[in-house]
């Protein structure tokens, strides 16, 4: 890993569920020995911000115009399928 990657966490308001997901992912990745820069935004702001981040973790649908990888973050709210999503995020961070 030559440079620290940036994850954009997105949800409807940019402050509620994206905060919960950001915290959960940060803690889990720390355990896996990985750190990253985090940004948070409303889903509607993602198309304008996507160019400056490596990938997106979102709890709401993201515009199809976004070409960066979008990982679904709902698992961190429901607890269902969390490990699989963490593996996906780890793979993106290690790219």
């Amino acid at each position: 890993m030559s440079r620290q990657k940036t994850i954009l966490f997105a949800c409807g308001t940019g402050i509620a569920t994206s905060t919960a997901v950001n915290v959960a992912v940060t803690e889990a990745m720390k355990k896996r020995g990985l750190t990253f820069n985090a940004q948070q935004a409303k889903a509607t702001e993602v198309p304008g911000l996507a160019d400056n981040v490596d990938f997106i973790v979102a709890t709401t649908p993201i515009s199809a115009s976004v070409t960066k990888p979008v990982i679904k973050g709902l698992a961190f709210l429901t607890g269902i399928g969390k490990d699989k999503v963490l593996d996906e995020i780890e793979a993106q961070l290690r790219k």
Partner: peptide, 22 residues
């Protein structure tokens, strides 16, 4: 029903809600 106005100060509350949901 969440009334949230400062994400940095309400992390604990959000985590607590999520823990209950899960």
């Amino acid at each position: 029903l969440l009334a949230i106005n400062d994400k940095d100060k309400q992390i604990e509350a959000l985590q607590s809600v999520m823990a209950t949901i899960q």
